[in-house]
Design a binder for these strands. Structure first.
Lengths: 168, 168
DNA sequence: ATAAACTTTCAATATTATTTGAAAGTTTAA
DNA sequence: TTAAACTTTCAAATAATATTGAAAGTTTAT
């Protein structure tokens, strides 16, 4: 298999898997393309490589930038913007964890906090059962939060190890 | 706020958030309903409470059972099947982690293993860059896998603590 | 100030995922 | 064996989400 085929196959698969991760296919594909490509790419080049419309590339590129997975680059003497993906897999992981936390954990915790400060009326047994559920859920969310912190620390730890390696 | 309102509000929110988690809204709603309800519910009752069609309840209930989040119950002298949710939040967490791992991590790892055993031809620099990416990705996946194991152990540890509490 | 080069927006469209409900299938009791 | 009670299936309808592309907006060079 030649490198172009390998790249395309990676992009396709990454895009398909993105869906399972709740990430729009195009966004995952663009990310995959930038990951596999050494040099920075322009919007035009991305459109060309994976056959997406200009608007699509623009919107999803912005989202990748929001996630801190991609950076804009300006080339001397060029008017166009170029894009480059963070290639450090640990910092990618950290950004993904942070983002998923924001999207998945924070809203649940907010709901729970809301319900906890609401006075609930009804048969004592049912209210108790409900409140136990809410309390347990909060503990769960807090635990998941800790876990995601762990993921990030793990990551930092690896970065630290790499720094040490570079210095030695 | 009375208990019925609290319940419905919880069900609605849980359903909405389910989407963010990649879980079908109805499935999340049914799960939420069973979590908030002490007694086992029949398909009819679920349909009634959250206004879903029979087929929808049937299919999503089966999925909840696949996830080990819900169990079928048979009531003495009743022909109907009843359903009850696992109320232990730690075992719920464990099942969710396991399921997400299966859906999100395993397929990525499979793809990576595939690419690793494919001989890739092309300019040496590009091939090297690509292979580094693949290697890094594998390390990432392995690390995430470890993390999900940790999540499960965390859970078991808490379960163990609870057992001790019960015995003492 | 003008125009070329480029980026962004967003209403329309296409795609994908979910839900419905009626029909088919199954089990149980008599 | 029959029929009532219940469960399952799945093609079609609906809803949610992603994508397109042309037009509007912005920036830069002359």
């Amino acid at each position: 298999m030649n490198i172009q085929e390998a790249r395309l196959s990676f992009i396709q698969t990454w895009g398909a898997l993105g869906s399972a991760w709740g990430i729009p296919r195009s966004m995952a594909q663009i990310h995959a393309l930038l990951l596999t490509t050494h040099k920075d790419l322009s919007t035009e080049e991305v459109m060309e490589e994976i056959q997406l419309s200009r608007g699509n590339v623009n919107i999803n590129m912005r989202e990748l930038i929001n996630w801190n997975l991609v950076k804009k680059q300006h080339k001397l003497g060029e008017r166009k913007e170029f894009f480059t993906a963070d290639k450090n897999i640990w910092s990618i992981a950290q950004n993904i964890v942070t983002e998923r936390k924001r999207r998945e954990l924070v809203p649940v915790h907010d709901m729970i906090k809301d319900l906890k400060q609401t006075k609930i009326e009804g048969p004592i047994e049912e209210v108790k059962h409900f409140q136990t559920l809410i309390d347990d859920l909060e503990e769960f969310v807090v635990q998941m939060d800790k876990l995601s912190e762990m993921a990030i620390k793990l990551n930092k730890n690896v970065l630290f190890k790499n720094m040490m390696k570079m210095l030695s």
